[in-house]
């Protein structure tokens, strides 16, 4: 029942977002454009701008939410998230390198390659001793390395234009969202969420500790490989399209946990939907807030919401 309400909320948010933008469209305009009627301009606004942007927010948010839920389930640590475990930083490094060389059209594949290399490194180090603790250390370490190299690239940016491009890109935004981006992001995200969904039951067994989970037939190596692949696909495709968007993967699973209970397998799908809704709402706020010439960046907004939440979690952890 609560799942159906969540899905309905997502659909309602998508529909609502179609009305938001600089060109005011009425209910009849939107419904006509959606069904392929109405003026060509309105159809273009809906099909080429607003709908892809809304769907991209849903998919990217879903990937981040599912990744956070799976990482928190695997590490049995509620502070784990794709941003903290280095995946986002590796994807960002790939994109920044593309921008450094003045190749903005290669940002998407570069971010995906960055996420892939990062994931391979993290998995390689974590594979030395297959345990959640080692995965966290490997993720934090690889992420710090990626951030350091990103700083180096910015340090040697060939011109102010490249530097400003990198800085804007790192603040995260969906303003360049289009259908071609959706066609890249959606299948990769769905594949990633599929990997994470597949290990859901194993994450449940892992709540009893790694040894007990193994005794119940769980292969830690397989779970770790699917987890890292799934997170890399979700985060890589999201960062490739929208730049760095932090903290969604950290706090969305917490909110879903409050509503749906602690079962880590169920949380993956629920956090995916909730993450989509959250990112779409956040993007709608940035669109409503941004006037001509002043853009509120999506990544800035999610961090402004996410960081206080993170600190609250830390305080709560200390108190209990």
């Amino acid at each position: 029942m609560r799942l159906i309400l969540l899905i309905l909320a997502a659909i309602a948010c998508i529909l609502l977002s179609l009305f938001l933008g600089s060109a005011p469209l009425s209910l009849t305009d939107v419904s006509a454009a959606l069904s392929g009627n109405g003026s060509e301009l309105n159809q273009q606004i809906i099909w080429e701008l607003r709908l892809p942007r809304a769907l991209l927010a849903i998919f990217i948010g879903a990937g981040l939410g599912a990744s956070g839920a799976a990482l928190q389930g695997y590490t049995r640590n509620e502070l784990a998230a794709p941003g903290i475990l280095g995946f986002s930083a590796c994807a960002a490094l790939g994109a920044v390198v593309a921008l450094y060389f003045g190749l903005p059209h290669l940002v998407t594949p570069a971010a995906l390659i960055g996420a892939g290399i990062g994931a391979t490194l993290i998995l390689g180090i974590a594979g030395l001793k297959k345990s959640a603790g080692v995965l966290i250390l490997a993720g934090v370490g690889v992420g710090a390395l990626a951030t350091a190299i990103t700083g180096l690239v910015m340090n040697f940016a060939p011109n102010p234009w490249a530097l400003s491009e990198i800085v804007y890109w790192m603040m995260g935004s969906l303003r360049h969202a289009d259908m071609s981006g959706l066609f890249i992001c959606a299948p990769l995200t769905l594949l990633g969420i599929g990997c994470l969904w597949f290990i859901g039951p194993d994450l449940k067994s892992l709540s009893l500790g790694e040894l007990t989970a193994q005794s119940l037939g769980v292969s830690i190596g397989k779970v770790q490989a699917l987890l890292v692949t799934g997170v890399a696909l979700c985060v890589g495709s999201g960062v490739a399209i929208a730049g760095a968007i932090g903290f969604v993967g950290l706090f969305v699973p917490h909110i879903t946990r409050m509503i749906f209970g602690p079962d880590p397998a169920r949380l993956i799908t629920r956090s995916a939907i909730a993450g989509g809704i959250f990112l779409l709402l956040a993007d709608m706020v940035t669109r409503a807030w941004s006037g001509p010439g002043t853009t509120l960046y999506l990544g800035i907004l999610t961090s402004l919401i996410g960081v206080p939440f993170f600190l609250w979690l830390v305080v709560r952890e200390v108190r209990t």
């Binding site: 449940k204 067994s205 009893l208 500790g209 040894l211 007990t212 005794s215 119940l216 037939g217 602690p262």
Partner: peptide, 23 residues
């Protein structure tokens, strides 16, 4: 196998933990 350290998800109830034995 019954491990030496007694780990389980704190918010899971007893019935949910028992179900994990059927994994």
């Amino acid at each position: 196998y019954l491990a030496q350290d007694r780990q389980a998800m704190p918010s899971m109830n007893v019935r949910q933990i028992l179900e994990l034995g059927r994994a």
